[in-house]
Amino acid sequence: MSEKYTARRIIMESLPLLLAVAILSIISGQVLQGHETLLLSLPVFLLIVPAFVNQSGDIAAVLASRITTELYTGSTQKSILKSDNLKGSVLGLLLSSSIGFTFLTILSYSVSMLLGFNTLPLGTLWTIILLSGVTTILAVMAVGLIIAVITFRKGLDPDNFSAPVVTTTSDVIGIFLLFMFASLLGGI
């Protein structure tokens, strides 16, 4: 087991992924600047986007982290996909994130009102955030689960891959789905 934790192994497994993330996020930073006009037309989204993306990534990363632990401790006799831990974790995370997204809606709506920002009606905003949030989480959870299982089977340490990929992809998928639902439901 101690072989899992040598600095050399962690570095060799992590470095290629991190360098790819560095390049991708510099490029996507340039691309996202184009969306700023859309954001500025409805400033409530300036408040929502960072917290929304953060929460989606966190929730999916908790699942990734729990699955990698499950793979190592092997507390399930069945396939990980049919395990009680996976079902219970997904359910619990969907519950807490639904409340989290509702909380985010109320907070950002109230702050927008206080600061006199343009915003959508509360109910519309809540529907947009909840639908795009839950869809993002389910999509990114699937990505994290697939990566955890594949890297573990290949003899790599899934802890070095699953959670980092999840937190990064949730940014892209989350922003894409948020704007998709916003234009569908909010008429932006």
């Binding site: 990534g57 990363a61 632990t69 699953s162 980092p164």
Partner: peptide, 19 residues
Amino acid sequence: AVLDLRGCISSALGSRLGS
């Protein structure tokens, strides 16, 4: 990019410590 990398390194560390 700096914030994304901080998140990646930290979440991988958190995941390893959890295991």
